[in-house]
Design a binder for these strands. Structure first.
Lengths: 271, 271
DNA sequence: CAAATAGTGTCTCTAAGACAATATCAC
DNA sequence: GTGATATTGTCTTAGAGACACTATTTG
């Protein structure tokens, strides 16, 4: 009878075929500020961080940041490391989306990706400073279902417009998988990863907890409401929104002055 | 300048270190029938499918069904295949939980597991028939937080009682990770996988969609209510429960007779 | 009949939606 | 003052919780 010690001494994982493992990060940000000068209303847009691929495969196409898992690190550490390396952006939290493992999804061979949603504050992005020539850019996101049941994912940055079309492949127990009909110029199967990430994000944003992640420590209730409306693609009357989140926030005593209207109180998250 | 074709021809995934990949399945069932004869009230319990490990490592200990991913299959296919092979139970749906990748989690080496929650109908279990000598058994599950913030996971089947203790390691955006304080006799890090699976299950069961998965096509509202109460560990007044699910079900016209009380209407899921 | 569970009706309370009114800044 | 947004209050409505009541079977 072999002991566990003996078993382990003789066991070789290398005797079996193994896949390569990558992580991909769908990092979302809500922009509250005006990019184009001269307009009155701030453009609140949900934005997604993409990088232009510098090497093969899919060279020159846009993709989610991510890369191969290294020995000794967790997939979360890998996701953080790769995002930092490729974009200089530091994700605050990672929410697992799913693993993508369909054979053929990567032309290099047997590669499986673990995808995450990450939530980034606009503040932390501004600290990094992202120049327009960079290979990493924030694309505005829209994701909607049409009358025929098809999903349209549109990602736009400057002149670049990526329009992917997807179909619902399977929806069970709050999870939805998407099949790519048109990848819209996105690398790999990233269109379907982004679609899945959007459903996870919207689901998570049902908890108020999630929306706080997009804002700095102190914020106005109007900016909080804009984040919520932007992510969920809904519209709420200001009075009602204030009542709803009443118990989740507390006043700091500070005000935002200098805006040509009544100053807004600054709040922080309660507890 | 190298073309993509040339790049791929020269590319070798094998040049980089790769992990082994496994899947683990937390298959849940709600038992609505009396196991012990002579008792009046049916024992409604949430149950989890575990197998007794026949080989090293963790030989003789209880574990989730699962196994190594094979080339050419998706992780979902692997999860289904391994569960079928090891337990004869056919999961109806798989909901991803997370990937578990902490170094050292498997004594054999660098092994990463993708975990799923699966929902099984009692009907399909009875068709298979599971004998008491089998290595696969349904354990009753209880999972609760104590006053000190520790989580207690108790799995029981016959004389076997596995009591694991876990601490909340990180909770963000509706996801909770657990650190094992006492594995309670479960193999690998399966105690923390099961804990994570429980939170995913409870979260999913917030949608009524999920609870239908535990029942056959036609069911009584009382059995539906019992499933809901068992999973969520709550108690609802019958009248209120009926009102809440009113719009999700429709009558079949059939009745359950022979029960020494008023016959219950059979319902099916609407739409 | 009693025991047991199935199913209905209604009062109350809370929270969300609609909307009106007031507050306070820059200019 | 005007324009703009912040903030408060109130009426209405939908849904959840509590609870009392009726219905229909077996033994």
């Amino acid at each position: 009878m072999e002991s566990e010690k003996e078993f382990l001494a003789n066991y070789r994982l290398e005797d079996y075929e193994r896949p390569s493992l990558t992580t991909d990060v769908a990092a979302f940000m809500v922009s509250t500020e005006n990019r184009t000068e001269g307009r009155r209303d701030p453009e609140n847009k949900l934005r997604l961080l993409l990088i232009k691929r510098g090497g093969h495969p899919y060279k020159g196409m846009w993709a989610l940041p991510g890369g191969f898992l290294q020995s000794g690190e967790t997939i979360e550490e890998c996701a953080l490391r790769e995002t930092m390396e490729e974009t200089n952006v530091m994700p605050a939290a990672l929410v697992p989306v799913a693993a993508f493992s369909k054979p053929g999804r990567d032309p290099r061979g047997w590669v499986i990706s673990n995808a995450f949603v990450s939530i980034i504050t606009e503040e932390s992005v501004k600290q990094v400073g992202m120049d327009d020539a960079s290979d990493a850019q924030w694309f505005s996101v829209s994701f909607d279902k049409d009358d025929e049941g098809l999903y349209h994912l549109t990602l736009e940055y400057g002149d670049v417009s990526l329009k992917a079309v997807l179909a619902e492949e399977r929806a069970s127990y709050g999870r939805t998988d998407f099949r790519i009909i048109d990848n819209g110029g996105l690398a790999f199967d990233h269109a379907s990863i982004i679609a899945a990430a959007m459903t996870v994000l919207r689901r998570a944003a049902g908890d108020y907890d999630t929306i706080f992640g997009f804002l700095p420590e102190e914020f106005t209730l109007t900016s909080l409401q804009r984040v919520q409306e932007t992510i969920m693609n809904v519209s709420v009357l200001p009075g009602n929104f204030r009542r709803m989140i009443r118990n989740y926030v507390e006043e700091t005593g500070e005000y935002v002055k200098g805006e040509r209207h009544r100053p807004a109180k600054l709040f922080r998250r309660k507890k």
